[in-house]
Computed example of a mutant assay.
Amino acid sequence: MSKSEPMQLALAVTLPDDETFASYFGGEDSLEVSHLKDSFNNLQHAFQYTYLCGLGDSGKSHLLYATCVHAQEKGLSTMLLSMREVFEYGPLVLDGLDSLDVLCIDDLHLIAGNDAWEKAVFNLFNRFNEPGKCLVVTADLLPDMLNIELPDLESRLKWGTTFQIRSMSDDDKAEALVKRAHMRGLELTDECARFLLTRLSRDMRALLDVLDKLDHASMVQQRKLTIPFIKVTLNL
């Protein structure tokens, strides 16, 4: 495999087709979305780097997916690198990624304390640092709280614009489910959304998977989403 070509074996990350800036629970007018969109307008002038931090269900991964979708719509080469998916393959997966226009790295905190990974990400950062390139990373904490052992990498991680994103409340999750359903042409009432939150896992990814199942069942059976229908469909 040529060093100029990104390794494909470990990078089979599928982008959810409905996780866009428009469906972000914080709204398209939020500071973080406005900043990410502006990054594309400034690409040709300078390297664009954004650091998104937050705990689970903060929506930071959604913003990565949305950034990749936005890049694809603009005809730019892009990739989303999930550290949870590729960590076991080792730093070799980073080879050639500097050929991309836009690179998004999820859960970067997982490399903290791993010498080989820290050095590889540091080197990638330096190779990516040029006009026309956009790098967006997520982690659970701020750079100086990650226990990164390589001082130069910690310094690089502080270079760009940092956003601390709060975790979603139950109200946020209910609103997000209603909004996502509406974008699919599916009517999900607030009452039904709150029922799902009380009876199922509050993990947003799991809730969206349930919404997929309900959407399919509603289409097949030509039924509206009601609490009785939800109970039967999900065996609750």
Rank of each mutant, 00 (worst) to 15 (best):
K74E: 06
L31R: 15
V178Y: 10
E187C: 05
L55K: 15
L234M: 15
K74M: 14
G160K: 00
F40D: 09
D95G: 14
G90H: 04
A12I: 05
E32P: 04
S58H: 00
D95V: 14
L80H: 00
F40A: 09
C104A: 04
L177G: 15
S2R: 14
C192E: 13
S58V: 01
D172V: 13
T198S: 09
S39Y: 08
V137E: 02
D107A: 03
S30W: 04
A71V: 11
P228M: 02
M145I: 10
V33Q: 00
C134L: 12
L141E: 14
S39P: 08
V137Y: 02
L9K: 06
A116D: 14
S155G: 07
L225T: 04
N147K: 07
L197K: 02
L81D: 03
N126R: 01
V220Q: 10
L108V: 06
E118I: 01
Y65L: 00
V210T: 13
K60L: 03
W159S: 04
S2L: 11
L153H: 03
D144W: 04
D209A: 10
R84L: 08
E88L: 15
V137N: 03
D115Q: 09
D29V: 07
V121Q: 02
K179D: 09
G59W: 07
W159K: 05
Y51A: 02
A66R: 02
L200V: 08
R84S: 09
G96A: 10
V33E: 00
Q8S: 11
S23A: 04
T14A: 10
D140K: 13
R166H: 12
C68I: 11
L9A: 07
S61D: 02
G132V: 12
L196S: 09
F21Y: 00
F87P: 05
T233F: 05
C192K: 11
V93K: 02
G132N: 10
A193Y: 04
D101L: 10
M219W: 12
L188S: 14
E154K: 05
L208G: 11
Y24P: 01
L200N: 15
D144T: 11
L11A: 10
Q164T: 07
A66V: 00
P16Q: 06
V102I: 08
M183G: 13
T162V: 10
H45C: 08
N126G: 00
S39F: 07
Q221T: 14
L236R: 12
L153A: 05
M83Q: 04
V86T: 13
L52G: 02
K119P: 08
V33S: 01
L186R: 13
D57Y: 14
T198Q: 11
I227Y: 03
L177E: 12
Y24W: 02
I105M: 06
L11D: 06
S99F: 05
